[in-house]
C-alpha cells in the first residue's frame, strides 16, 4: 500500500487537478493507494468527497514561504509516511522544487521540473523559449509602462490581446480600449503586462508526461467543447492529431521536461498551430486521459518511485468528459476540524 499526497483539491469552477489525479490514482492498475489530501483552504471541495482522502491537512499558503511549508510537511510526514507527493498548483511549485532534497530526506518523493525549466515556460519568457526551441508562440511584447503600448500595437496590429502577469486576458480593438484595459490589468496584476497577437481559432490542449531525459511517455490531445466564462473547459473530447503529439514530443525533447505538463494551443483557420501557454502540472481534466487509456498520474507514480515506464500506446479517441456541478453534503464538524485544527 502506497501513501500518496496531493494538492489542488479546489475542484471549483476554476479547478485544480487534485481530485482528478486522485481519481486516476485510485484506478492505477496493480496498485493499492492511500490518499492524503493537502489543501490551502478549509472549503476546498475535494476534502469533502466521501471515501477519497484518508486524511486532509491544511498547508500554509505559498506566500508564507518554503520554510513554513517544510515545517508543515514534516509534521504531516511524522503522521502519514507519504511515499509520493504530487503538487497540482502552479503557485506552490517553486517551493516544492526548492524543497525537493529536504522532502526526499523525509522519505517523500516527487517528479518535478527543474527550477530552470519552470522559469523558461513562464508567460514572460514563453516567446523567447519558443524562438530558442522552434516552437510556435504568438508574437508577444512585454509592456512595462503605458508608453510601451504604441510600439507593441504597431508591431502586432489590431486587435491584440492584453494579458496579466499571472492571470486574466482581454482582447482590445482600439488604442483607447487598450489603454483602459492596460491600467485595469496593471492595477490588478502589476507590471509587466503582455501584449500578444490576436489569434482566432480552435482551442486545443495536450496533457503530457515526460521523464526528464527528453522522452515523451504520453500525450493526450483534447479539444474543448464548451467553456466557462473564465475560459475553462467544461466539456472536451479526445482527438487524434499527429501534429499535436509531435509538438508535445518536441517540447519534451527541447526542454528535457521532467514531470507532467499541459500545452494550451490554438489552431487558426489557416491551420497554423500556436502554443499559448505551458502549464507545469497536470490539467484539471487529466482523468479524461486516464479514461482514454493513458493513466498519466499512475505512470508518474512509477517514475517517482524509480520504476521504468514504457511509452503509452494510442489514445482512445472520441472519449468525452462533461463536468457536472454536484453538491456534496457535509457535517459542520468536518469543516470545524479542518478550519480549526488544520486536519480532518
Amino acid at each position: 500500500m502506497l501513501t500518496i499526497a496531493l494538492t489542488g483539491l479546489n475542484a471549483t469552477d476554476s479547478p485544480g487537478a487534485g481530485v482528478a489525479v486522485a481519481r486516476a490514482l485510485r484506478e492505477a492498475p496493480g496498485r493499492a493507494v492511500r490518499l492524503v489530501g493537502l489543501s490551502y483552504e478549509p472549503l476546498e471541495p475535494g476534502i469533502f468527497l466521501p471515501d477519497f482522502f484518508a486524511k486532509t491537512y491544511l498547508l500554509p499558503y505559498p506566500s508564507a514561504g518554503s520554510a513554513a511549508l517544510l515545517e508543515r510537511l514534516t509534521y504531516v510526514q511524522e503522521r502519514e509516511q507519504i511515499d509520493v507527493l504530487i503538487p497540482c498548483f502552479d503557485a506552490e511549485l517553486a517551493h516544492f522544487i526548492r524543497l525537493e532534497a529536504s522532502l526526499k530526506a523525509l522519505g517523500i518523493r516527487m517528479l518535478l521540473p527543474t527550477a530552470n525549466q519552470l522559469a523558461s515556460r513562464d508567460k514572460l519568457r514563453l516567446a523567447e523559449f519558443g524562438a530558442a526551441h522552434h516552437l510556435p508562440v504568438p508574437a508577444t511584447h512585454a509592456l512595462h509602462q503605458p508608453a510601451d503600448l504604441p510600439a507593441a500595437a504597431a508591431a502586432l496590429g489590431w486587435p491584440l490581446v492584453l494579458k496579466g502577469r499571472w492571470y486574466e486576458a482581454e482582447t482590445v480593438h482600439t488604442a483607447a480600449a487598450a489603454e483602459a484595459a492596460l491600467l485595469r490589468l496593471a492595477a490588478r496584476w502589476g507590471w509587466p503586462l503582455l501584449a500578444q497577437r490576436h489569434l482566432v481559432g480552435q482551442e486545443l490542449n495536450v496533457a503530457g508526461l515526460a521523464e526528464g531525459q527528453g522522452h515523451l511517455l504520453s500525450a493526450v490531445p483534447m479539444r474543448k467543447l464548451t467553456l466557462t466564462d473564465k475560459g475553462k473547459a467544461w466539456a472536451g473530447i479526445t482527438i487524434e492529431d499527429e501534429m499535436l503529439t509531435e509538438l508535445a514530443q518536441r517540447f519534451a525533447e527541447a526542454s528535457r521536461w521532467r514531470g507532467p505538463f499541459e500545452l494550451e494551443l490554438l489552431r487558426t483557420a489557416a491551420g497554423e498551430l500556436f502554443i499559448l501557454e505551458i502549464n507545469p502540472r497536470f490539467p484539471a481534466w487529466i482523468y479524461l486521459a486516464a479514461a482514454a487509456g493513458h493513466n498519466q498520474p499512475a505512470a508518474l507514480l512509477s517514475l517517482a518511485l524509480g520504476e521504468p515506464v514504457a511509452p503509452f500506446g494510442p489514445v482512445a479517441v472520441g472519449k468525452l468528459f462533461i463536468r457536472c456541478a454536484w453538491d456534496l453534503i457535509a457535517d459542520n464538524e468536518h469543516f470545524q476540524l479542518i478550519a480549526g485544527l488544520g486536519e480532518v
Partner: peptide
C-alpha cells in the same frame, strides 16, 4: 476566539504559527 472562515483565512493559514 477565532472565527472559522471558509475563504482565505489569513495569508498564514491556521498552522503557520508553528513557525
Amino acid at each position: 476566539l477565532r472565527r472559522l472562515t471558509a475563504g482565505t483565512l489569513s495569508k498564514f493559514g491556521p498552522q503557520a504559527g508553528a513557525g
